[in-house]
Write a protein that binds this DNA or RNA. Structure first.
Length: 685
DNA sequence: GACTAACGTTTTTTT
DNA sequence: AACGTTAGTC
């Protein structure tokens, strides 16, 4: 196991220990970790503070299951992201056996639900071939409805409605009973629209899977029989719905293990309930509770500062995180004149530190609250030729060319899928515009069939002009021809897609809309990536359906992203969870940024505090936090107040300084150097 | 139906 | 400052 900074290592110690061939060693674990690994029966709650070797403990525990003879097919591990899932599987594969690791189910809640629903959604009145709507699909549908139902002039925002819909679904509130009447009617219309398109959104996956298990005892018993041992990682970020799903999934004798840290619960905005972890006993009887409190990641100075902050939160599971790495240099808090200087400071520091310690770029990470904050920092890094990697800025799978390509693949699989059909019906433009699309959709609803069927229906075609009719017929023929090639396996689907995109001149159209060469290149790469991914999936024997499902749920684009790319890491606080870096810069500790403006309004400052806590605990050796007096906002200078959190930090291991002090000193040094250089020249000359 | 120009709006975090 | 949306034109 190589030690690559920025990758979630099982723990700081995992990387320096030789890997145990054919198993793991109890000796390499501390007492609490051993206890966790050995406790395989009944409900178990592992409270794992930051940097306490959580992942290692969980992987060892599951390895232990395999070693004591539990069949891999009976093991389910639920992770927060797909990336975490594949990493966990890989690690267990390395500890026990690759074959067994492959046979286990390791995935996210959402992937698990797709698995359940592909098998049984017909029992709930959906067709088995349902499509999964991503965030942008949802927004598209909702925007249309807002216009159609006359909310546009009242500036009703589709995103806002969807946020409420999501809340309602997660809380189990009926959409028709939502608080705001107009929102409620939009929500109902939205749900009807999804239904008509035989589509589900992310929340529906959970809602329907839970319903399926709850209402159908045979299905429930079947899956309880399959998944005899269930582990849920990052449990602090699960919501009420996921809890209910888990309860359906796990029956007596409740061999369920949940792992998490309530202090790192940072997804409340999407319904995460720390109550799940705080009141775990309420859901599963008499759990064994194990506390992991030995931190192997950070210096005492860093950990002390983090602890002093998180103590301010109420309603926690009290933990006393102890550092195993003593001392360490003090945490620095640096006041900046503006965000420009903040970026310069970071770039210069990275440059200097790297040179001084002969360190790789990967040792450094810059953490920020919102994505927009990265821009200035990127510029400063680019100016100094410092390589950097941005994590999860905009999702790969949310890019237009990717979504379009995937939509075409979906049509090759099933032309009757409305969601992808409507997406690419006129992309690139082929003379089937909005009004025709509306007409076709209405017609499809009348005959109670898919939009595709409407497009092929003589009754519909006779309603449109000859020109439009020709366009439609060309389109349907093109799709059918491609589908036939895929079905007959004349050539692999990725080749069919390539050929198809060439035929419809997709790329040239895309490029026409690009402003820069680099943008063109990005688009090309996007399509290339889809083709590669598709090819890879097919080679692994996956079906088109499976490929599409995986793509729909994949949050993290190229999973080996961090590994492949080199450079300093730029990342949001949210995305940084689970990672660690020797040297961390945490920027923007200002009121309105961290805590975010919205959290102040909504009264969720506790979560912002946890967010800062997560950020601080990412640092292994060095930590610098910054705040600005002035920041650019919408192209205008706005003055900022330092974050209230700053005063909550214990100053025992904290040095408060300013940009001028640091950079001024450096400048002096330089001037001094110049002076002596000049003197030398003078004397020599 | 497609393209362009001007306008207004935006910025939390993500499965 | 940058993006998406809308209105107006061809």
């Amino acid at each position: 196991m190589s030690s690559v900074p920025g990758l979630p290592t099982a723990s700081g110690t995992a990387s320096i220990r030789p890997r145990m061939a054919g198993g793991f060693s109890f000796d390499s674990l501390n007492k609490a970790q051993r206890d966790a690994v050995a406790s395989l029966d009944g409900p178990v709650l592992i409270l794992a503070g930051a940097g306490t070797g959580k992942t290692r403990t969980v992987t060892c525990r599951i390895s232990n299951m395999l070693q004591v003879g539990i069949a891999p097919e009976n093991i389910l591990a639920v992770t927060f992201t797909n990336k975490a899932a594949s990493e966990m599987r890989e690690r267990i594969g390395g500890m026990v056996s690759k074959k067994k690791a492959e046979a286990m189910t390791v995935c996210t809640f959402h992937s698990l639900c797709v698995r359940l629903l592909r098998g049984g959604i017909h029992k709930l009145g959906y067709k088995k071939s349902f499509s999964i709507c991503s965030g942008s699909d949802q927004v598209g549908i909702m925007k249309q409805l807002v216009v159609r139902m006359g909310g546009a002039d009242e500036k009703v925002k589709a995103e806002a409605v969807l946020a409420e819909v999501s809340k309602a679904k997660n809380r189990g509130v009926e959409l028709k009973d939502m608080e705001d009447d107009f929102f409620s009617s939009l929500a109902v219309a939205y749900q009807n629209e999804l239904r008509a398109q035989n589509a589900v959104d992310f929340d529906d996956l959970l809602v329907l899977a839970e319903q399926l298990l709850r209402e159908h005892a045979d299905v429930r018993d079947y899956f309880r029989g399959v998944y005899k041992r269930v582990t849920v990682d990052e449990f602090q970020d699960t919501n009420g719905l996921q809890m209910r799903l888990l309860q359906q999934l796990v029956g007596p004798p409740y061999h369920v293990c949940v792992v998490g840290d309530d202090d790192q619960s940072i997804y409340g905005f999407r319904g995460a309930e720390s109550a799940n972890i705080l009141e775990f006993e309420r859901f599963f009887p008499n759990p064994k509770i194990i506390l992991l409190e030995e931190n192997y990641r950070s210096t005492h100075a860093i950990l002390h500062t983090a602890n002093s902050l998180i103590r301010r939160n109420l309603g926690r599971r009290e933990k006393s995180l102890k550092s195993t790495i003593l001392g360490g240099e003090p945490v620095r808090l640096v006041g900046m004149p503006g965000d420009e200087e903040e970026a310069v400071f970071i770039a210069e520091e990275i440059l200097a530190d790297k040179a001084r310690g002969n360190l790789p770029w990967e040792h450094f990470a810059v953490l920020f609250r919102t994505n927009k904050q990265s821009r200035k920092i990127e510029e400063a890094l680019r100016e100094r030729k410092i390589p950097y990697r941005m994590v999860g800025a905009q999702s790969f799978y949310d890019r237009k060319e990717v979504k379009d390509s995937l939509a075409y693949v979906a049509l090759f699989d099933d032309p009757e899928a409305d969601v992808p059909l409507l997406r690419v019906l006129n992309a690139p433009p082929r003379g089937i515009g909005q009004s025709t699309a509306m007409l076709a959709t209405d017609y499809s609803r009348e005959i109670g069939a898919s939009v595709w069927r409407a497009l092929c229906d003589e009754g519909f075609l006779s309603q449109v002009s000859t020109k439009v009719r020709n366009s439609i017929e060309t389109f349907t023929t093109q799709i059918l021809t491609a589908k036939m090639k895929v079905d007959a396996k004349v050539m692999p689907a990725n080749h069919v897609l390539k050929e198809f995109l060439d035929e419809i001149e997709y790329l040239p159209w895309l490029e026409r809309g690009c402003k820069s060469e680099s943008e063109k290149q990005q688009r090309q790469e996007g399509i290339g990536e889809v083709l590669t991914e598709l090819s890879k999936a097919l080679q692994r024997g996956k079906s088109l359906r499976k490929f599409l499902d995986d793509s729909a749920l994949a949050s993290d684009r190229e999973d080996d992203d961090l590994e492949k790319k080199s450079g300093a890491t730029l990342i949001t606080l949210h995305a940084s969870k689970g990672l660690e870096f020797p040297s961390v810069f945490l920027v923007g500790l200002e009121e309105g940024v961290l805590p975010h403006q919205r959290s102040v309004v909504e009264g969720t400052k506790d979560e912002e505090r946890r967010l800062l806590y997560v950020g601080i605990t990412r640092a292994q050796q060095r930590l610098a936090m910054t705040y600005c007096t002035v920041r650019m906002k919408w192209g205008q200078e706005v003055s900022c107040q330092p974050s209230g959190f700053i005063l909550e930090l214990d100053d025992e291991h904290l040095i408060h300084t300013t940009y001028d002090e640091i950079m001024g000193a450096e400048a002096d040094e330089e001037e001094l150097g110049n002076f002596f250089g000049g003197l030398k020249n003078f004397l020599d000359g």
